[in-house]
Nucleic acid binder design. Structure first.
Lengths: 137, 137
DNA sequence: CTCCAACCTGGAGCGCACTCCAGGTCAAGC
DNA sequence: GCTTGACCTGGAGTGCGCTCCAGGTTGGAG
């Protein structure tokens, strides 16, 4: 069903009112419908877009790229290939991001293990292994 | 074992020269040793810290928190518990971050599958699930 | 001794993604 | 019809994490 007030759209999408207005202003979200008095009425389609923007934003896509995707979609079906490639390319970067995050998380866990297993003394290999608590000189 | 010139420290740590100076200026990296003429000489200890900062930064820790950790370490062994807790707390946030990233990555992959029109069940639930290409009205 | 690439400082500027504000308008409930 | 809270606009401000600049100094190669 269609027709969400701004506050409702904000609640459902998880974006702030200001962010919704901002996304429309910069042309990320297409012009939102209005009441006779000029107040926004968000549709299910708008909400669908917001879900997508949240996905892309959470995975680190810059706004400029999201806007490019949105503009392509507005141009019609003939841009489907380019949109797919844009998403595929982004997915590759997300995979890299996930690998890096996992690697640094492992590193972090080792550092925590160091604290748990060494209540007092500080080993000489601390800095050579990059694992120790990096206590200052 | 020896000292490293700024450019060498930058190369090894992956931070820019400006960033190294910035980290020192804001008190993240402790004061770096200097030559008689005032040029920086980075030690292995400094490099160890930089490896840690890279780990924390890559996992999204704000600089203010890294600085807190570094200051605690400079205060001595009696802050070990607090440092450990700080890292543990951060690790929890990283885990949440990894779960979110994985979830949004899955969304993204489903969206790409939609574009590829592979024999996958995508019906009228498109927007309800946020999977379709979100083609504009 | 000369050269010049690498280095130094303080401070200004930047890019991103919002976030806030003033000063007004709209619309639903009593 | 009055009140009140949600909403509107354009534009300025914020926070973060660097990044760049001007103008001067250092120090190793030749």
């Amino acid at each position: 069903m269609s027709g969400y007030a701004p506050s409702e759209a904000a609640r459902r999408s998880g974006f702030s009112l200001d962010t919704l207005r901002y996304y429309e202003k910069i042309g990320l979200l297409a012009d939102v419908e209005r009441t006779a008095g000029g107040q926004r009425v968000f549709t299910d389609d708008d909400l669908g877009w917001l879900v997508l923007f949240r996905c892309l934003r959470d995975t680190g896509m810059p706004i400029a790229q999201m806007r490019r995707y949105a503009q392509l979609a507005r141009e019609g079906e003939h841009t489907a290939d380019e949109r797919r490639e844009l998403l595929r390319h982004h997915a590759v970067r997300v995979e890299e991001q996930m690998r890096l995050l996992q690697r640094q998380y492992d590193h972090l866990r080792e550092k925590i293990r160091f604290y748990e297993r060494l209540p007092e003394p500080v080993s000489a290999t601390e800095h050579a292994t990059g694992i120790g608590p990096a206590v200052s000189r």
